[in-house]
Each structure stands twice: as structure tokens, then as C-alpha cells.
Design a protein around this nucleic acid. Structure first.
Lengths: 159, 159
DNA sequence: CGCATAGTGTTACCTTGTAACATGGAGACC
DNA sequence: GGTCTCCATGTTACAAGGTAACACTATGCG
């Protein structure tokens, strides 16, 4: 079983690696990982769960980094536009990306019990979808694939 | 090319068939297709596009069928719960189902230009996803598959 | 009739998201 | 060094989406 947010892992490392990775990529791409943006990424990485924009905003406010919605939304826009975070449509919420870097649009697995979210590869589902769409003359540009169910831990405790 | 909301079709027939079908199914299943519910379904069928709850509510209000949000949301809950309409997460909006009856969770193709929405079969993408999830120990219960792109007509006029 | 159930009407509120404008700060160019 | 430009931030004010909770109505049923 591959390592995901569902499996036990060194979470501290997972945060610092995520941030480091973002720092590196921003440097390379000439993007500015400003304090607010960086902090939002850290908050998302710390939680390892989908968080609402206002939940993030509360944290920023406590830390004196901004108190109005646009602050949070702008940081989130930056992070999602550059692949450091993703938006979960179903939850109107955001998660840190767990493999920033690879140009990817993952599928999400959302645990309906503990709300943890994992990314998984969506190449196959996406290909199958593109195929079906082609038959209708529709050209797919982006696709959101979001599954709800039970994560390994919650499956275990349910049975 | 199969007939979808993207292809030209007899729209009047498409509305009346949709309603008839719903009437029949409700009778069979002992569900009540009340005036509000029926009218909401008609409104959705007329538009053949994703509509926000408040947009629908405006129509209801004009017709004296209810003026407060819960009225619209309750009708929409009924319609989606029974497969007569679907919710598009990405748009926070609703569409009439184009093949009510078959027990299905379709994939959606959303045109980013004209906002029309078509359903397509999601069996394959869904199967591929379930497979990927299994590798992570995650059990998928429901999955939303929503693609954004260009519909045949808009593709045409873009080129 | 009297009751239970399901649907409707309404108030009041919460959450999510954005337009628009003012401010500040860092690099580019002269 | 000045100043211009671009980008990010701060703030106000509001739009859009969604729901809890309660009172009322209709309908079927013993």
C-alpha cells in the first residue's frame, strides 16, 4: 500500500518537505511564496485535511496575518493555481497537495467519517472519461474526480 | 453521435417526456410529485442547463409558488434524491436528469462557454477509480465526475 | 372524528465567495 | 537616487449559496 494521508507517516517531515518543495519550485519558476501564502500552505499541511477558507482565515487572524476573506482566498488562489493545493468542490474546501511538482490533476478520496483526503492517480479514470466525451463531440479540458467513502482506518473501526 | 443536450433535439418533447417519466416513476414508487416539485423539474428541463437554486427560486417567486430558499432547496432535495435531477458540485447548481430511471451516477460534461451540461456514462471512469482506491485501502461509495471543456457547438464556433 | 405523517410557508441566520478600491513594497530603468 | 510599474496586501461592502427551527396545512387512515 502506497503512503498516503490515510496511512501513518512522519507528519512533521511531511510538513517541512511540503514547504521546502514549494520554496524550491517557486524559486525555479520565479513565483513569490510570500509570508501569507507560505503560512496558508503550512496550515493546510499541518491539518492534512480539507479546510474551509474561513477556517484558514481564522488561523491567519489569530496570527495577525490578515483578517478579511480576500486575504485567504488570494493565497488559496495562488496555491491552487500553482499546484501546491487543490480545491475539493464537493466540500467547498482546500487541501495541500501531497505531490506538488508533477503536473497533475489528481482524483480525491474523501473519507466521509474522518474527513481526511488522499490524492490518487486519476490518469485512468480521466482517460476513460475523455474517451466517453469524445463520442459526444465534447473536448475535456479539466476534470474533477472526487470520491466519497471510507478510509482504511475508518473501515477498520466500522467493522 | 448519441443525442445529448449538446446536439439539436426536439426540446419541447424533451420537457414533456421528462415530466411524464417523472410522473410515472413517482406513481410507481409511491412518491409525491407535488406542484412545486413538478414545476422545479419543468424549469430545469426547460433550461437544459445548470441552474443555481436562487435562479430557480426567482422563477418560483414570479409564479407565486414560493419565495423563500427552503422551498427551492426542498424541491431540489426531492428531485436529486430520487434521481430526477443532479447537483453539479463544481457550479453549486442543478440540472435535470436526462435519463431518469436507470439507477445511475453519471459523469457530467460542462461547457465552459455556454454552460450547457450533458451526462455521460461514468461506469468506466468509476471502475478505474475504484481500482486505484482499492490499492490505498479506500472503499469508494459515491464518486462525482465532472469535466469542464467545450461542447461540440462551442468548439465549432471557436475554431 | 382524531391522529399521524409529509409537505409547505416563513423567519432568521450562517457560510462561502467576490468586486472594487486604497495602500505598500521591490525591482527595472533612466 | 528618483520614479514608474507591477504585484501583493488591506479593507469595505456585499452577493450568492445554504440551513435550522418553528408554525401551518393537507391528506390518508384507524
Amino acid at each position: 500500500m502506497t503512503e498516503t494521508s490515510f496511512t501513518p507517516h512522519d507528519h512533521g517531515a511531511c510538513i517541512s518537505q511540503g514547504v521546502e518543495e514549494a520554496v524550491r519550485q517557486c524559486r525555479e519558476a520565479g513565483l513569490k511564496l510570500t509570508p501569507v501564502r507560505r503560512r496558508v500552505l503550512e496550515i493546510l499541511l499541518e491539518r492534512h485535511r480539507a479546510m474551509g477558507a474561513y477556517e484558514i482565515l481564522d488561523r491567519l487572524r489569530e496570527e495577525g496575518l490578515g483578517s478579511q476573506p480576500p486575504v485567504a482566498y488570494r493565497a488559496l488562489d495562488f496555491l491552487t493555481a500553482n499546484g501546491f493545493a487543490h480545491r475539493i468542490e464537493r466540500l467547498n474546501a482546500f487541501v495541500a497537495c501531497t505531490h506538488a511538482g508533477d503536473d497533475h490533476t489528481p482524483a480525491f478520496l474523501i473519507c466521509r467519517n474522518c474527513s481526511r483526503v488522499a490524492e490518487t492517480d486519476s490518469t485512468l479514470p480521466r482517460r476513460a472519461l475523455a474517451e466517453a466525451a469524445k463520442g459526444l463531440g465534447f473536448s475535456v479540458e479539466r476534470a474533477a474526480v472526487e470520491a466519497e467513502g471510507l478510509c482504511p482506518a475508518c473501515l477498520e473501526s466500522a467493522s
